[in-house]
Design a protein around this nucleic acid. Sequence first.
DNA 1: TCTATTCATCGTCTTATGGCGATATGTTTA
DNA 2: TAAACATATCGCCATAAGACGATGAATAGA
Lengths: 114, 114
Amino acid sequence: MTQKTVSDLRVKILSALSDPTRLELLEYLSGGERCVCEILPAFQRSQSTISKHLNILYEADILERKVDGKRTVYCIKDPRVFEIIRRVDSLALTQISQLAEAGKILEKSLNNRS
Amino acid sequence: MTQKTVSDLRVKILSALSDPTRLELLEYLSGGERCVCEILPAFQRSQSTISKHLNILYEADILERKVDGKRTVYCIKDPRVFEIIRRVDSLALTQISQLAEAGKILEKSLNNRS
DNA sequence: TCTATTCATCGTCTTATGGCGATATGTTTA
DNA sequence: TAAACATATCGCCATAAGACGATGAATAGA
């Protein structure tokens, strides 16, 4: 039995989330389940690349997969994944505003110097 | 000006979080600020490796750094990073329990088959 | 000023990751 | 059963990432 610890799984989940294409895939799937043939035209990546990304999300237990005839349909397994992403976005937004703040202060001191 | 979008930053944050050593570093720093010479003996990694990991967390704006004499002190910049990690853990725990559930069902059906 | 301490950075190696085209597999449809 | 379709997988390449020891730069103390 391949004993999986929470530590292993969380690294796997976070790794799966740390790619721009995969984050876009999740956003795309937030609208509901989609088969690969719907997903493909929405992304400027080769079929093999998209398939690989979907599989990484599936292996991380983030996506669910069901085969329906000759189609394969993917969907979000647990919507809490979006809560995680939203919290990360929130952190990122704070970082951006702090950067902007620092920029203003720098600008001001440069003006005063002249 | 290197324009940073939220998308760029969130990938950077998530990438920084997707490594077991760095997650351990964050846990270690959850107890408060620590200088590198305190951190080092707590980890079985070379000094250069730890330094690099700390820098990745710093570059992702997750850690703050202040130089104090010949020491460098690191601390958590925004405690919300732990909320993110806790949510990921929560997802991971759900996955584990679902795995355990599936295991039981499989076991049962194997017993019935005999 | 010489030495020790603390830490970052460099160079190198090995492995992981993302990308693609080509091929394989399974499923409908003709 | 052959052809067409939908996906997964393979093999390859290029780049990124993690690890380490060695070196460099700054500070503190003798």
